[in-house]
Simulated assay, not measured.
Amino acid sequence: MLNIEGALKQDRLLRALTGLNRKAFDALLPSFSSIYFETQQTKPRQRALGGGRKARLLTTQDKLFFILFYFKCYPTFDVAGLLFDMHRSQAHEWMHRLQPLLEAVLGHYMALPERHLESIEAFLSRFPGVQRVMIDGTERPIARPEDPEQQKQNYSGKKKRHTRKHLAAVDETKRILILSKAREGKLHDKRFHDEDDIAGSIPDEIPIEVDSGFQGIQKRCF
């Protein structure tokens, strides 16, 4: 299993695995833990002590690391299961359980915090050292929805499978600055951006790089 405690002690490695340094990870953890425990329901125990599968993600710290790692590296569930010493079905289950919790926390901390940080000073205070921002869409595969309309909305012609999509703004080190909420895989990057306006959260003085999928916002992006 991945040595989570070891990764947390090395900022460079932690950023490579989760997109966050230790300070940002520790700042996110209390809110993530609070939301996680709020979603838990007390149920009568169905098994005797010691029964069932052995837990691998024992703490909320482990759970936060797992879901951040998943979205940073996008491993297959077979690979995630191998790295975290669990069956692929458990990796799939944990991803779907933890994703909405992470999105809820990022909604407070990272996902479009203000429509526009009015000054370059305010932006650099929030995101120190950033000189250039790159905006792009990223998709993650999901199980084929049972509902026909959901199948249609979440089918990505680009990936040739059913997906959910995020838009992310990252700096030169691939640190995630802004992360949108998940949307249907069919949604085009440009339309997604028009509705969320990630570029509008970045001061005009900061150069923004986009690919051809964002044609139309190049007036202020390079």
Rank of each mutant, 00 (worst) to 15 (best):
E5I: 06
G6E: 13
L8W: 07
K9Q: 11
L13R: 11
L14T: 10
A16G: 08
L17D: 09
T18K: 07
T18N: 10
L20Y: 05
K23G: 09
K23W: 00
A24F: 07
F25P: 02
L28E: 02
S31E: 12
E38A: 13
T39H: 05
Q41D: 09
P44C: 04
Q46N: 02
R47P: 03
G51N: 01
R53Q: 12
L58E: 14
L58W: 07
T59S: 04
T60Q: 11
L64A: 10
I67S: 00
L68R: 03
F71I: 02
T76L: 02
T76K: 01
V79C: 05
V79R: 03
A80W: 14
A80T: 01
L82S: 05
F84N: 07
M86Q: 06
A91L: 09
A91W: 02
M95G: 07
L98F: 04
Q99G: 03
L101V: 03
A104Q: 05
A104I: 00
L106P: 00
G107P: 05
A111L: 12
L112C: 12
H116S: 15
E121C: 01
F123N: 05
L124E: 14
F127V: 10
P128Q: 08
R132H: 14
M134D: 12
D136N: 10
G137A: 15
E139A: 03
R140N: 10
I142R: 03
I142C: 06
P145A: 04
E146T: 15
E146Q: 14
D147R: 06
N154W: 02
Y155S: 09
K158V: 03
H162T: 06
T163N: 11
T163L: 05
T163Y: 08
L167K: 05
A169W: 08
V170T: 11
V170F: 02
D171H: 08
E172R: 13
K174F: 11
K181M: 12
K181L: 12
A182E: 02
K190P: 04
F192S: 03
D196K: 06
D197W: 02
D197P: 03
D197F: 05
I198R: 00
D204Q: 12
D204G: 13
E205N: 09
E209F: 08
V210D: 02
D211E: 12
G213R: 06
I217H: 08
K219Y: 08
R220H: 13
